[in-house]
Amino acid sequence: MLSKRRLSILGIVAILSGCATLPDGSANLDRSSAPVEIAAAPFFPQQQFQCGPAALATILVHSGASTSASDLGPQVYIPGRQGSLQPELLAATRAADRIPYVIDTSVSAIYAELAANRPVLVLQNLGISQLPRWHYAVVVGVDPNHDKVYLRSGTDRRREMKLKTFLRTWQRGDFWAFVALQPGELPTQPELTRFAEAVAAVEASGHDQAARSSWQAAARRWPEHPVVLFGLANNELSAKNYQQAEFHYRRILATRPDNLLAANNLALALAYQARHAEALQQINRVLANAAADDPLRPEYLQTRQEIRDMPKKPSHDEEPAEAS
C-alpha cells in the first residue's frame, strides 16, 4: 500500500510529466510504400466474447501450427471475465511451439512484419479509457497511400479501418502487438534482449527444440554476443551435449572473463564430463571472484556442493542407467 504522502508525490510526478507525450504510433510509416496484405491469412469468426482464441488461431495457423479457435478456447478464454489475458495469449503461443515476439509500438513495425508474411495480433480498446471495451484482432493489411488498415476482427473477415481510427484504438491498448515466430525465425526488426527473453521463455516452458533453432538463428544475427552464446550453451547443456556447452561457455569467457554466470555453468559442464578436478577448480575461482553480497552467490555455492557430491567414477553420463 502506498502511503498518502507517497500518493501525493506520485501525483506531482504525474503532473510534472504531463508534457511527456505518448509515442506517435504512425511515426516512420512511409506514406509512399506499397500496400501490403496477407490475403491468405485464415479467418476464425469469433464466438460470443471469444476474440482472444479467434485472433490467436489466425496467427498460429498462418504460421503453420495445427490448431483452431475452438482448440485454443480452453487455453486462453476465461468465461468469468469474458475475455483473455495477454500473458495467456503469449503462453498459448509457446504451447503451440511458436515464439511470441512483442513488436515495436508503431505502424511501421506492423507493416514490416506483414511484409514478412506474418500477421500481427493487436490489442485494441474500442471503447474509451474510462469505459474500456477490450478487443483482440489481427492486422493482415496496411495501405499507407490510402491510410487504411485491414483486420481479421470479430465476425468480420476483412474489416477496413481508417489508419487514424485504428491508431486511436491501438493506442488505448498501449500499442500492444505481437507476432508468432516459427522456431529459427527472426522478427524483421529484432531487438536482442527482447528476442532472447522470448526464446528463454519458450525454453523454460519445455520447448527445447524450438528454442534451439531460435538460438542458432540469433547466433547468426549476433555472432559472439554473450547472451546468445549463453542461451546456446544452456540449450546444449540441457540436451546433454556437454562438450558443445563447454565450447560456448568458453567463447563467452574468452571476451568476458569476469562473467561468473558463464563460469558457473562451465564448471557444471565440466563436472558432467566427469572432469571433477577441473570443475572444482573452476567453481572455486567463481566463488573467489564473487562479491560477498552477490545475489547469485547461493547458486555458486550450490554448484560447488553439487560437484563435490558427484561420484568421481563412473562418469556422470553412465549414472542414470545404474539408477534405474
Binding site: 527473453e197 547472451v227 558457473n264 550450490q302
Partner: peptide, 24 residues
C-alpha cells in the same frame, strides 16, 4: 544423489538464460 541426478541432471546449480539476461 543418483536418483536426484536422474530427474534433475541439468537443472540443479545451472544458471538459466533468463537469469543472465536479468543480470545484464
Amino acid at each position: 544423489i543418483l536418483s536426484l541426478g536422474f530427474t534433475q541432471v541439468s537443472v540443479a546449480g545451472v544458471i538459466d538464460t533468463q537469469q543472465l539476461i536479468d543480470a545484464e
